[in-house]
Structures are given as C-alpha cells and as structure tokens.
Design a protein around this nucleic acid. Structure first.
Lengths: 300, 300
DNA sequence: GTGAAAGCGCTAACAG
DNA sequence: CTGTTAGCGCTTTCAC
C-alpha cells in the first residue's frame, strides 16, 4: 500500500496533523520536526493524494481547457502557451476537444465542473444562441474565452484585434498596388470573421475603392478550403493579384493550388496568411499578421 | 451552495444512498423512484462531485498524457487521437509538456500520480539512463510509451516500424536512380533514429551501394535544422539529388532552403518527409511515410 | 509547537 | 428495493 500521512505519522511518532503541516510547509513547526518528517516521507516515497486534499481545500489547482480542435496548429500553439503558464503557476490542465460542436462543449464543461476545476479557458464553438449565453453566464467558476469573442462577455475575452489586423493587411496590399484581392474569409457567424471583414472594408473605404463582392468568400478555414477556392477562382477565370487568407492553414492550401497552376508567389500572386504559426515563418514568402494570445492566457 | 446528494435526498425523502444509486444507474431501483430522483436532480442542476466520488472508488477515469512538446504537430496529432478515444471511453485527459527534459517528465508523472490517474501515456524525453528505467519500472499504474521505444519496455510501446519505414524511403529513392541522398536523421540517442538508420543502411546494402557518410547528419529535428542543413550543404557544394528527412517539419525547412536557392522540387531535388502530418498532403510534392499511432493509442 | 476530533461528498458493505 | 453505517486521506477548527 502506498504511503499516506498516517504511515509517516506512525513511523515518526508525530500526529497526522503535524505531518500534514510539515509537508505543506506550514509555519510554526520546529526545524527539527520538519527535518525528521521530511526525510521519512522521502524514504517512504510518499506521494500526496491530491484528490483527498482537494476534498477539503477549496481549490483543485486544475484548470479545464476547452479547445475546438487541438490538432489545429493555431489552437495547439495557444494550448502550449497556456500549458507553460499553468506549469509555472503550479496548475494542471484538463483538456478536451469540442470539434466545434456546442453540445460537446457544454458536455465537456460539465465534466470539468464535476472535476472541480478552478477555472476554464474556452475556445468556444461557432454557434452562439441565447441558450449558450445563459449557459456561460451560469458557470460557477471563472472563465475566459480565447481567440473568439462572445457577445456579452467582452471582459472575459482575450484576443488580439482582428479588425486592426485585417485592416493592416488590406492597407498593405492596396498600398502595393493590388486592385483585385481575393479574400478568403472565415465562417460567417464568428466574431473574428465579422471583425476582420470590418477591417477589410475600412481599408477599402480609406483608399476610396469599391469592393468587388465576387472576390470575397466565407469558408470554414481548413486547408482544403484555400486550395479549392483558388482552383475554382482560376477555373472561373477570376482575376486577382493577391490573396488574403483567414489563417495560415488556408494560405497553405492557396499556395499549393497556385504552385500547381504555375503561378509564382509573390511575383504573380501575393499571399497573406493570418495567425503567424510557428510554420509560417519557414514557408515560402508568406507574410502573416501575428496573433499570439499564447502567453497572455495563463491566468484563469 | 451547489446541490449534492444530500440536497436531493432531503428534497425527495429518499436516503442519500438511494439517490447515489439512481444517479449511477444502479439496477434494483424501481422505475418510479428513479424518475422522481432524476427529475429532482435535474431541477436542482445537480453536478456530481467527481473528486468525492474518486475518493471512494478505485479509479478516477483520468489518464495522464505526457507529451514532449504539444505544439509539435506530430505530437498534437497523436494527442488528438488519444483525446478522441478517451472521450469515447469516458476518460478525461490531464496533459503536460516536458520539453524533452527528463526531470520535468519525472516531476510531471509524479503530479499525475498524485492526482491518481488510472494510466499514463508517455512520449518519453530523449534521455534514458538506469535511473529512468528504474523510475518507469516503479510506476504504480499502467503506462504505455508512444512513438518512442525504451529499452526494457518493449511491450509498453506503441510505435510503427521505423526501420521498415526508412528502408522503404531509401528503396524508393534508390529505385528512382538517386545516388547522392542527403539524409537528415534525428537525435542520435532515441530509438526512432537508431531504427531508421538501420533501415537506411539496409536499403543501401540491398542495392549493393556504399554509404557516403558525408551526406548523413543527425539533427534535433526542428524546422531550422532542415533549413540550415541544406544551406550548409549547398555552401559546401555537397552534391545531392534527394533529401530524406527525419520528419515533415525538417522537410519544410529543407524545402524553404531549396526554393530560396532556386532549386525546384522534385525536378532538381526530391524531398521526402516522415510522419505524414495533416499538412504534408497539402504541401508541394512531399512524399511521406505514414506514422499514425493516433487511434491505436486509446487504451491505457 | 503539537495533538484530537470533525467532516469534505461520496460509495460500499451489510442489513432488512 | 431501500436505509444505515462506516470510512476514503486529507485539512481545518479548536484545544493545550
């Protein structure tokens, strides 16, 4: 049987309580007692029982991380940032994926609550209805949203400014003389898309240019989307000299299609991603706007 | 105060025990009682306390996942596989990163044990000494190693056959007529490298060719490594018509360097990765050997 | 400085 | 089918 406080107490002749205090570095314990007990604990290979401990104490030092898709490099970089910070703070992470389904998200959060997490970091699924708002509002623990903004929970959100980011992208492209920019935006109902579309429109307005709606597409944001979109555009003989993508993954798909069609980057077509994944800096010319809530995320 | 069994018991007039049984779908409870209790539980928004529960029951339905670096796409795809399976089985995942440090790994595992995980899935850090072997051997819960093989724990390892994989890569390249193949292998002391090097040598032997040691490099396996290695090779005027990489990430670095040097892929130089990341299929010609323990990993 | 006792919310063993 | 009792390993009063 694995050693417990009682084992150590009996072995040293002190009370369970004293042992517990020593092991938690409580003050008002004599140096000597502390030494004796600690060495005994070591000898017995004592491993504290965090379960029993969090039964009595108010917190579990655990946070729940709800990710939409942890194999998506963007999310996994964010998760890594969280992980580092959590580590530093002595917290553990419970992680789960929702695959962009709100039901799964709700289920997962309930599981986390049942495990008494001290806080939640949520990368919310697309969908946001009355019900979801109410659900979030009812959460009994602190929570933050990462990467996406949910109506009514502004103060709970950590994000970089999508509007500014996309405006800068378009300002840059327009400044480079591009007049036909293929814009592969994201899913219509999420905050990032809405914000970025605003930024895009702003840049056009500033430059006094009209927007060609035929060049704008709202896509889920996977690699295939970028690939297909450019293929289609080329097939339909759409003219464009630049492509602005919703994220770096889409950009990769775009680049693949362009190179298959013997178009060079950036000479024939300029491509811009979004997110600045670890990868992106090592890809063929792919300018990307940085979006790294990564380390900002460590305090739930 | 959050509802507990006692709350429901008092509200319905049944005993705590009966409530507990109903909520765990224990047999031998009348339909009627069950209905009453369940609806009351619903009404009160009862969320079971998994902590208290695992205090008594032998398992916590939690597994610990020890990853070397969860922002590395290979690991994150594996983790995603685990996550899906865990989900299916009703397990939760505690995740931590070791950054390839064995001390961190040991620390992390202890933390997981302290949280009473039912099992561990470990992507072990490079280093493997006597001490580590002993440490693994002393683990009081079931564990498996994913992706890497540790001496003495063959039966605990889940991996695809590195030797065969690399042999096939070289067979293919040699078959294509390549006689100067730059081989960017992995860190010397890990099992994958050793196995793959064996496979490489085997392919050369089969073909009756000598191995040019100047074309073989053992690198940590990051993107920069591939990038730098090819740059160096070109600077030193090393001749090569193909590059075999330790993983797809290295291959990306390689491709970047080649294209900066105006070498076309695969006309001038053929590039082969390893791992077959989600990405890879969408990159410019990058043949990759598949390595997906992902779903195999779900039973700890 | 240290110890004794109570109890966290739940499950399991034993009754009936 | 349901209730009573005990106790998981720890932290927290409250004593002395």
């Amino acid at each position: 049987m694995r050693a417990k406080l009682k084992t150590i107490a009996e072995a040293t002749g002190f009370s369970i309580n004293t042992v517990s205090r020593v092991l938690r570095n409580d003050r008002r314990i004599s140096e000597k007692t502390s030494r004796i007990i600690k060495s005994k604990a070591d000898e017995l290979g004592y491993i504290p029982d965090a379960i029993a401990s969090s039964m009595r104490s108010p917190n579990t030092r655990t946070i729940g991380v709800v990710s939409a898709d942890s194999s998506n490099p963007f999310f996994s970089e964010v998760i890594k940032g969280i992980s580092e910070k959590a580590d530093e703070l002595g917290y553990q992470m419970l992680i789960g994926n929702t695959e962009e389904s709100f039901e799964k998200e709700e289920h997962l959060i309930k599981l986390f609550l049942s495990r008494k997490v001290d806080g939640l970091i949520i990368m919310p699924a697309y969908n946001t209805s009355e019900h979801h708002i109410a659900f979030y509002a009812s959460l009994p623990v602190p929570f933050v949203f990462a990467g996406r903004y949910i109506d009514g929970f502004a103060s709970h959100s950590i994000l970089h400014c999508d509007e500014d980011g996309e405006r800068d992208v378009f300002r840059y492209l327009i400044g480079q003389g591009h007049r036909s920019i293929l814009y592969l935006s994201g899913p219509e109902c999420i905050s990032n898309t809405i914000e970025r579309d605003k930024g895009m429109m702003e840049a056009y307005r500033e430059a006094g240019l009209d927007i060609d709606q035929r060049l704008i597409f709202h896509l889920p944001g996977h690699m295939e989307d970028g690939y297909q979109a450019v293929n289609n555009a080329i097939n339909k003989s759409l003219e464009f000299s630049a492509v602005a993508c919703f994220n770096d993954i889409v950009a990769m798909g775009v680049m693949k299609s362009l190179s298959e069609n013997d178009l060079s980057i950036p000479d024939d077509v300029e491509v811009i991603g979004y997110d600045n994944l670890m990868f992106s800096q090592f890809m063929n010319p792919s300018l990307s706007t940085v979006d790294v809530p990564k380390h900002k995320l460590g305090y739930a």
